[in-house]
Structures are given as C-alpha cells and as structure tokens.
Amino acid sequence: MSQLAWNVNGRDVELPGVSRETSLLHLLRNDLKLNGPKYGCGLGQCGACTVWVDGVAARACVIPAHGVAGRRITTLEGLGTRGRWHPVQQAFEDAQAAQCGYCLNGMVMQAAALLARDPHPGEQKIRDELSGNLCRCGTHVEIMRAVQAAALAADDNDA
C-alpha cells in the first residue's frame, strides 16, 4: 500500500493506503464518494463505469488506481454542474434519455468524449461510439436523439 495522488474533477486528491488491487472505480466510489460512475459488469464491457482519463473515455472498473496516479480523472460530477451542465448532460435531460438512469453516466461520458473529438458525428458514428455502452431499459432511441441534439447545440454555440 502506498500514498498516491490524482487530479479528480479539477481537484488534487491524495490518498494514503491505496492497494495495488484497488480499481479506479472503487477509489472513485468508495474513497472519494463520487456516485456518477456505476459498477455494472466489472469487466469493462457495459460502460456504466466510464470516466475520462486525461480527456479520453475509459472503463474505471478495469483500471488499477495505481496505473493512473498523477493523471487527470473526470467523472460525471466533473463534466458539468447543475445550472451549467455540459451540452450532453442538458440534451439527455431535455430528451428524457434515461429511464432507470443506470447507464446514464457511461452514455453521457462516452458521448461527450465523442463530441470533443468530433463535434459533427453522423448517426452511424454515434451508434458505433456508444455500441459498447449497454442500456437495459432500451432508451437507445432517446439517447441517440440526445447526442444528436448536443452536437447541434454545439453548432449553435459556434455560430
């Protein structure tokens, strides 16, 4: 066990006693009490635990916390704030894209990462990007609408 540091949602965090077996998801949820990333499958296949590591979408359940020490971690809580939400968060709310909400974190984080790389993705690119994020409720139609709306909102802000 050792003391490690990260930048989580813009804040420097240092924790003692982090074992080598501790996943980033465990650290975020249990040690830092961030509820955005969810435990889904534990295998990195469902996307519920998606966070950004240095701006790139990653599955926190399969990343050792030690492996990303010193890096910049962004969770749903750091993407935007109530009253000043990220355009993807706002679009998901406007489209009522979540039913149970369990997949919401991963979908939003993955979609926001896509729009950061490609502000004008086509429908197939959005589908491809989100194909590794599972929604058990079947709100994929609303999720697609939300991501497309967020891309259009970004266009409106650029004008």
Rank of each mutant, 00 (worst) to 15 (best):
M1S: 14
M1K: 11
S2C: 05
S2R: 09
S2T: 09
L4E: 03
L4P: 01
A5W: 11
N7R: 13
N9D: 15
N9C: 01
G10L: 01
D12E: 13
E14V: 09
E14K: 08
E14Q: 12
G17L: 03
S19M: 00
R20M: 07
T22I: 10
S23V: 00
L24Q: 02
L25I: 00
L25S: 05
H26A: 11
L27N: 01
L28D: 05
L28Q: 06
R29K: 13
D31F: 04
D31A: 08
K33M: 12
G36T: 08
K38C: 02
G40S: 09
C41F: 07
C41L: 06
G42L: 07
G42I: 00
G42C: 08
L43G: 07
G44D: 03
Q45V: 02
Q45R: 12
C46A: 14
C46G: 11
G47T: 08
A48W: 01
C49L: 08
T50C: 06
T50K: 03
V51D: 00
W52A: 02
V53A: 04
V53H: 03
G55E: 07
A58E: 02
R59M: 06
A60D: 08
A60N: 07
C61G: 12
C61D: 11
A65Q: 06
A65V: 12
H66N: 11
H66G: 09
H66F: 08
G67N: 07
A69S: 14
R71D: 04
I73Y: 08
I73G: 11
T75H: 07
E77G: 06
G78I: 08
L79Q: 13
R84E: 10
W85S: 10
P87Y: 04
P87L: 12
V88K: 00
Q89T: 15
D94Y: 01
A95P: 05
A98G: 11
A98S: 15
A98P: 04
Q99W: 03
C100G: 11
Y102V: 00
C103T: 01
C103G: 12
C103P: 09
L104M: 09
M107Y: 12
V108L: 11
V108E: 07
M109V: 15
Q110E: 15
A111W: 01
A113V: 10
A113N: 14
L114Q: 05
A116S: 13
R117C: 09
R117M: 10
D118Q: 15
D118H: 14
P119T: 08
H120E: 14
H120F: 04
H120R: 15
E123K: 14
K125V: 06
I126Q: 13
R127Y: 06
E129C: 14
L130W: 09
L130F: 11
G132K: 09
G132P: 04
N133F: 01
L134P: 04
L134V: 05
C135M: 09
C137I: 00
C137S: 10
G138T: 02
R145G: 04
Q148M: 10
A150C: 13
A150K: 02
A150D: 06
A153K: 10
A154C: 11
D155Y: 00
N157H: 09
D158T: 02
D158A: 08
A159K: 13
